[in-house]
Write a protein that binds this DNA or RNA. Structure first.
Lengths: 228, 228, 228, 228
DNA sequence: AATGAATGAGGTTTCATTCAT
DNA sequence: CATGAATGAAACCTCATTCAT
């Protein structure tokens, strides 16, 4: 009974934690050019400002947790797919990636900001813990990758995923100029800018082919799904 | 806090602008975990706070200008090297890249923060202008690259450089946790982290080989110069 | 700088709002030659700077609110008197006016500064709202005036009050030269200046007689109460 | 020769002084919602910032000098008219007044701001000197007025003018809500606001009639010239 | 546990004025 | 005389965090 009560409480706590993250995500998606303050997040979650601090030790940790939820979703999908599928092609991974970015419009924008803040404002220990969890995910997904691609020596899978994620991030930061979403109008380039999804597809294919050797492009997915 | 000399002519003004950037850079290098405020920068430059605002319209623009100076230095070196050299190997480019990062310890840290701020705080027009200048540099260096690598179709050079720079950035952000410099003690990994220079070399080589085909490694530069 | 008590209910909040205005008024009265900054006001109220901003959106609005409290007091007294008294003589109104100015030494000085700022710095909408509330008060008091003076056609009461207030303001501005209060030593003129209360009495009497016809001076109030 | 040279210099100085005032006036008229800074004034006058300080000891004194030029123009016109005309009617004075305000759109706006600043920021002595000069003008014009209106006892003319000017000022401050000019569209009232020229005419007539007795309205000038 | 009032450090920017050239 | 670069005081406001209720 006491245990059950505690479980209920824990469940309730976790649910509220997620509600707060949902609120932050919602605000971030709705107004991507700015980062909401704690009062707004609390308000959006239907809570008082102080309550947020019962669930997150600081605003930075809240944002980091939201970012981590994004990352988690992405890697879960990746790991799940690798576990499920008998055969995996590069384009499959690309598709999953782009689909995820389209589904979480705030992902890269938040990632960029979180990483920017981690450069200075986030406490060392917090950042370390975050990196550690990130490593675990990478290791897990990397192992899955290695199962499918015999070309990959042990450890090469993690590295490849690391490079992949680095490209996803870095390319976004070069393309986004207060860009609100990854949606591209018809996939066309405007001016000097470039279309993020197309460019990412291109870069990742080069990276992967350079890592595991040239792959024949799967015919039916010749052009990657346009985002959004 | 007396001025050393008034900047009367255009030349002197440019010199003072650079002196302010030098001051900012110096502070950034000395204390990488925080970003100095304008008063500190002014002080470091031996000027008054208001004087800084004669040369930069805002603190953000000051930081962006410093970042741009870094970028400029890197791409100038790249372009210069491509123009000078009869033959260019992948390892040459890698070496230049790593050398530059080692010479500007604040480069990637600042880049990360600038990009983080550009996601929200920097005025749209400022960010746009920055991206435009960045594009020019990329285009110039990309053209140089295409002259050396006949495998590259027109436009592929710029894209490759873009991907390169994206990797440099993204990988840094995955590795740095309040890391102060790219210096690595003996090149060994500590804990979950990974050695940035080695990892970057590996990733770039994959990217480049995936883009322009496999290259034999030049023998005399088998291992990239360790950063310092 | 500890708080005395938290303002939890609406009543307490209103009280705190007034406490802040009291603090501002106190500072203004004590040092009329300067306008305190927000930190000083907060300090005087025993609050933190930020707390002031919980009650007033900006410093200008704080000052305007104080000014409005002055105006409100004056017009309330006027309206109350008009409602209470069976018969009203010009000298009664004059007396109320002068008494109020004496009781609020900061009134006209603040009014002058507020109006000066409204000419430029105050946001259009703020100024508009202020004027609207001012109009209401004038209308209310004007109606009361019309009830007592049958000579006044509908609408003439408001106009007369408007002119009255204009004279009060304008004459103050011509007389005050860093004058701290309306107190005059013995009512005598010094140098080129003139005695504000006497001059105001004279001007208002002319205005009113020009508006509602000549009135016999009430004998027992031949000379207006000297201000103190 | 030396004298002539000096005279030329003095003339030149005076001319430049006026050029600076012209510049300030021009800016004030062009953008009435803000007060230009010294750099802008200097720029508009085709001079350097520092040069302005060779002709005016401070910005406040510059503004005050401009304001005084306005006042001077108004009283000169008044005095001139009183000296020239064999007979003077109230409407004549009203017309001159309104014409002047229309010709100097920045007059009252600047006056309001100057008086607001004099309440605190202007040095006591500067303000005193300004008031003294103002008194002289009033005395001179007041004497002229007394010559035309035998109803006025000695000293009453000055007082009447003082009250007149006070009404002009005070009424303006009650009407202007960032109003840019005294121009009124067709003389109609909008909302709670009132038309400054009409209201001023009404108030001044009441004041004057209360001071010198009822006057028959001159027939041909039944309605005062609309401003603009 | 929840609230939201209070805190106050923290940083940016403006601009009148000075003074070296 | 003229310049305009340099100064630096002055003031505002935000918002993450704390803590009394």
């Amino acid at each position: 009974m006491a245990i059950r009560q505690r479980a209920v409480d824990l469940e309730g706590k976790e649910a509220r934690r997620h509600a707060i993250l949902d609120a932050a995500e919602s605000l971030l998606t709705r107004a991507p050019e700015r980062i909401a303050n704690v009062a707004e997040v609390a308000d959006e979650a239907g809570l008082a400002k102080g309550t947020v601090y019962l669930y997150f030790p600081s605003k930075d940790e809240l944002l980091l947790a939201l970012h981590e939820r994004h990352v988690d979703g992405y890697f879960s999908a990746l790991i799940g797919f690798l576990a499920r599928s008998p055969a995996v092609a590069i384009d499959d991974l690309l598709e999953i990636t782009l689909a995820h970015l389209a589904a979480s419009p705030a992902f890269l924008s938040l990632a960029t900001r979180c990483l920017g803040r981690m450069e200075s404002d986030v406490p060392r220990e917090t950042a370390r813990a975050f990196k550690a969890r990130m490593s675990e995910r990478l290791a897990s997904a990397g192992a899955g990758l290695e199962r499918h691609f015999p070309e990959l020596a042990p450890g090469d899978g993690v590295a490849l995923l690391r490079h992949t994620y680095a490209l996803i991030l870095g390319l976004w930061q070069m393309s986004s100029t207060n860009a609100t979403s990854v949606r591209m109008p018809g996939g066309t380039c405007i001016g000097e800018a470039f279309a993020y999804p197309q460019e990412l597809a291109r870069a990742l294919r080069a990276l992967w082919e350079g890592s595991i050797g040239p792959r024949p492009r799967s015919r039916e997915r010749a052009s990657p799904a346009t985002l959004a």
